[in-house]
Amino acid sequence: MKVADFELYKSLLYDKSGLVITPDKSYLLDSRLTPIAKKWNYPTLDMMTLQLRAIPDPKLVKDIVEAMTTNETSFFRDTKPFTLFQETILPHMLQTRAAKKTVRIWCAACSSGQEPYSLSMILKDMEAKLKGWRFEIIATDLSEDILAQARKATYSQFEVQRGLPIQYLMKYFTQVGETWQLKEDIKSMVKFSTFNLLDDMSRMGQFDIIFCRNVLIYFDEKTKGGILGKMEKLLDKDGFLLLGGAETVLGITDKFVPMPDKRGLYIKNPALTTPTTPASSTTGGFASGLFKRT
């Protein structure tokens, strides 16, 4: 790809999705955009680029952005966050939300749905204990195509073997030919919608837990900081944020702090959320309590 063309795609992707493409990844542009050029009936990728320079069709731009985002995911990906969800987050929620019995969870950049559905399966498994509780799982992604796949909840043999314990496959899936269909009662626990993390988040409402894993890695520091800053506003004062294993808030924002010994789990910075009254152990509330507990 020519340098000028690379620059065109680079700025287009950055403006529309925050995605940062470095020159060493220019091969990805070729391999992922050639099928888009074909879909739009351009004889070559260069012809599509030419058109894009002249009058960019918003639908074409959308297709390009979607083709360039990574959809890598799996059920119970990395295991640990789901153990944290079950052993640290849920007990805290059951204790602190006992009055309203409602918990709102956001899976940001949910791809083909494995992350929110893993949470649904955990919750379904604990049904007896959660009687009378309402868990709302909102799952969003930039790509409409991948969300359509997520809503269908049909997975290949390969997909159901990566991370999904066999007991869950037996309990919550039905075999349909060569594929595996997630059962309706698990499927219906998740609400999907399109959402660009660069957009205004206020319409999302308030959350108790936000899963934002393995997506910030694609952004530059400024964009990461912006997204985390917006998420901080949506998160309840004693809510939880989960980031991917290779992600951190250090050096990006002071709105969140990592929980000691709980990798990937973050809470609001107690220094910013609590009143500055010295030696007041009660106003320290949940955040300082958690630190003490560990």
């Binding site: 073997q161 990566r162 991370g163 066999i166």
Partner: peptide
């Protein structure tokens, strides 16, 4: 556990 062939390193590792 139960693996359906074909398998790869990822699947064996995750199981």
């Amino acid at each position: 556990e139960y693996i359906m062939k074909p398998f790869d390193t990822e699947i064996i590792k995750s199981k």
